[in-house]
């Protein structure tokens, strides 16, 4: 489903350099990515999701070559096909839980917000234990609840690929397991592919495949890693 070919990336004003000869992520595959800090895990996720463009090489999402698309087409594709979950939750403080979940439908006309979508957002929130908190604002939620809202926002578009950047890094073990159970269950039910960056060795058993970025890529940075 996702294919990376001869990918190389470097930041203009940095000695950081990432090179991936080949990476294939299958449909409904759960891929865990580990590695030390600063070795390019988040950069890899940003490349896969099209947030940043590689210096060279190709990225395919299904039959579509992501690297050949324009910025807006990439955004449209990301919105429709990918769900993003961030380490810091990245919720909009001034939107209620329900509005945060519906955010993908409000920021791009390619997705139309219908009453059915609102009902689905409510059901999703209820299934994640947020049913009584739909009108609350993120500041009034616990860390675990905030991340559940963030997960619901990623799932509301029914993505084919879930991209998670250390989604459990700020959570206690109980909340961590709850979040991971939700993600696992969704991916299993809908055959959604999952790419998750994590430092947490306790959760590696949940993935079909775990890649250490140091083993499948060449990278350099200014701290002397190679």
């Amino acid at each position: 489903m996702i294919k990376l070919e001869d990918l190389s990336f470097s930041y203009t004003r940095d000695s950081f350099y990432l090179k991936i000869p080949e990476l294939l992520i299958g449909r409904s595959e759960k891929l865990g990515i580990t590695g030390p800090s600063g070795c390019g895990k988040t950069t890899l996720l940003n490349l896969i999701s099209g947030i940043i463009k590689p210096n060279s090489g190709k990225i395919f999402t299904g039959d579509i070559e992501l690297t050949s698309l324009g910025n807006q087409d990439i955004k449209d594709l990301r919105l429709v096909k990918m769900g993003l979950i961030f380490q810091q939750f990245e919720l909009l403080e001034y939107l209620s839980v329900l509005d945060n979940i519906l955010l993908p439908f409000r920021i791009n006309p390619i997705l139309e917000l219908q009453s059915e979508t609102k009902e689905r957002a409510s059901s999703l929130a209820i299934s994640m234990g947020l049913g009584d908190k739909l009108k609350r604002y993120p500041a009034n939620l616990s860390q675990g609840e905030r991340q559940r809202v963030s997960v619901a926002r990623a799932l509301i578009t029914k993505p084919e690929l879930l991209i998670c950047d250390e989604p459990t890094a700020n959570l206690d073990p109980v909340n961590r397991d709850r979040i991971l159970d939700i993600i696992d269950s969704y991916c299993d039910k809908t055959n959604t592919a999952l790419v998750m960056v994590t430092h947490d060795r306790e959760i590696l058993g949940r993935f079909d495949r775990v890649l250490d970025i140091l083993e499948f890529s060449n990278f350099k940075d200014n701290r002397g890693h190679e």
Partner: peptide, 8 residues
Amino acid sequence: TMKHIGAS
């Protein structure tokens, strides 16, 4: 965040 999710 809005940009990353898909806002133009």
